[in-house]
Amino acid sequence: MTAPNGRGLLHLAAAIDQEAAYDAGPPVELARLAERGALDFVTLGDTFARPGPDALSVLSRVAPATTRIGLVPTVTTTHTEPFHVQAAVATLDWVSRGRAGWRIDVSTTEGEARLFGRRHAAPAEALWQEAAEVADVAARLWDSWEDDAEIRDEATGRFIDRDKLHYVDFRGTSFSVKGPSIVPRPPQGHPVRVIDATEGHARRVAARHADVALVRAVDAAQARAVRAELRDAAARSGRDPDTLRVLAGLVVDLGDGEHAADRGHGGGGPRPSAQGPLYRGGPVDLAELIADWHGAGAADGFHLTPVEPRRDLERLVNGTVALLQHRGLFRTFYPGSTLREHLGLARPANQYAVAGGAS
C-alpha cells in the first residue's frame, strides 16, 4: 500500500516516558491518547539506572486498557537472561493480543554492572554483539513451538504435540540456551523488534535483526542517507530491505501552540540538542516537516518524543496527526489488530516448521 505521494504508508510512533511515574495511570492515559490518533505504537524507556517500575510490566498493565496501539518497552539484553527476556516479551504479545514490540538496548555503565555483581561493564561493541545473539535466540525460541503445538485433547489427556516442540540448542559467546520456550508461539509469530540505530554498533545489529530502526538526523538528507545504508546492510545480510521500517527520531516541543516553528526548527529541519534533534514550534509546521521528509524518502515514518508528554502528545494528535490525516498521508483508523499489521509487516514463518520439523 502507498500514500497519495507515492511513498509507502507513513508510520508514526510516540514515546510516553515520564519522570518519577510510579503508577500506571499516566502511561495508560498517554497510550489511549496516542491510540485515538491511530499511531502505530508507543515506546516506554527503561534502564537499570532508572528507579521505578520496569517498562515491560507497566505496558502489560496498559495492554488491557487499550485495544489497537502497539506497545514497545525497552528491555536490555545486558545482565539479563535471554530465555526469560524472550518469554516476557512473548507474554506481553499474548496479553495485548498481538501488539507487543521489544526495544532492544544494552547497559554500558559500571554502576549498572555493580547492581548485578556478575561482571564488569563491557565495551559497546561486545555488548551489541551479545544483543545480536539475544535477538537471534529469541526468534528461535519464539519458533520453538509450532503454531498448532497445543492440541488440548481431553480424551487422551494430551496437551501438547511433542513433535511440534523444538530444541534451539543455541550457543553464543556469553550464554547458551537449549529450549524450547515455556510460552507458546506469540500471536505475531515474532513480536516487533525495535533498535535505535543511530550508533554504528547498534546500526549493524538493526540491519540484521530489527523490524523497526530508529535514527536521529537533523535534516532529510542525513536521514535518507542512513535509511539507504540500513537497507543496503539488510540486503547484504540476506534480508529483504522492505521488511525494515526506518523511523526518524525527533524530540518535539509544541508549547508554542499554533505559532510558527522557531528559526532552524521548521522547514530546514530540527535543531541539534543533547536529547537529539529537536523541533520547537506549532503542530502545523511539524506536519509540514513530517510530510516533506516522508515525501523525500528520508524515512518511513517518525518516532516522536514529547518534551512535556501530556501537553505535546495532545497537540500532536489533535493538530499534527489530524492535518496529516486530512491530507490523506496518515490513517484515520487501524485496518488491522496487530502491530505487524500496523507496520505492514508479514507474520514470520516458523523456521522449524519450514525446515520440515527437524528438532
Rank of each mutant, 00 (worst) to 15 (best):
V72K: 09
T76C: 07
A124F: 06
G111L: 03
D232Q: 15
G117S: 01
T332G: 14
E229L: 13
E35K: 05
A213G: 03
V134R: 07
S96E: 09
H11Q: 10
A261G: 12
L304A: 04
Y352C: 06
H294Q: 14
V246C: 07
A355M: 00
H11I: 12
E341P: 03
E258A: 10
G344N: 09
V58L: 09
A88T: 04
A149V: 04
R311K: 05
L278Y: 02
E288I: 01
A261R: 03
V62P: 12
T338N: 04
I160R: 10
V134N: 12
E133A: 10
A24H: 00
L71P: 00
T173K: 14
F302D: 06
F170S: 03
R204I: 14
G117Y: 13
H294T: 08
I69E: 00
R208K: 14
Y279Q: 11
H265A: 13
A34I: 06
Y334K: 11
A135L: 07
D169F: 11
G117H: 13
P335F: 05
G344V: 13
Q18Y: 04
I290K: 00
D285E: 15
A228Q: 08
G70V: 03
S181K: 11
P51Y: 03
V354P: 02
R118H: 09
P4H: 13
A197N: 03
A24P: 02
E150H: 00
S273R: 10
A113W: 07
A34T: 07
P187H: 01
A260S: 14
A197M: 08
T108S: 15
A261F: 02
A15L: 08
A49G: 13
V252F: 03
R185L: 03
Q325C: 08
D285W: 13
N5L: 15
D136G: 11
V137E: 04
A15D: 09
A124T: 15
E112Q: 13
L254H: 02
D169T: 14
D242A: 13
P184M: 02
F48W: 09
R315K: 08
E150P: 00
S96I: 04
L247P: 03
A132R: 10
H265M: 07
T108L: 15
R97V: 13
F116G: 03
L9D: 08
H201C: 05
V354K: 08
A206I: 06
S57F: 01
A358W: 01
L115A: 00
G101N: 11
T305C: 13
T320Q: 12
A14C: 14
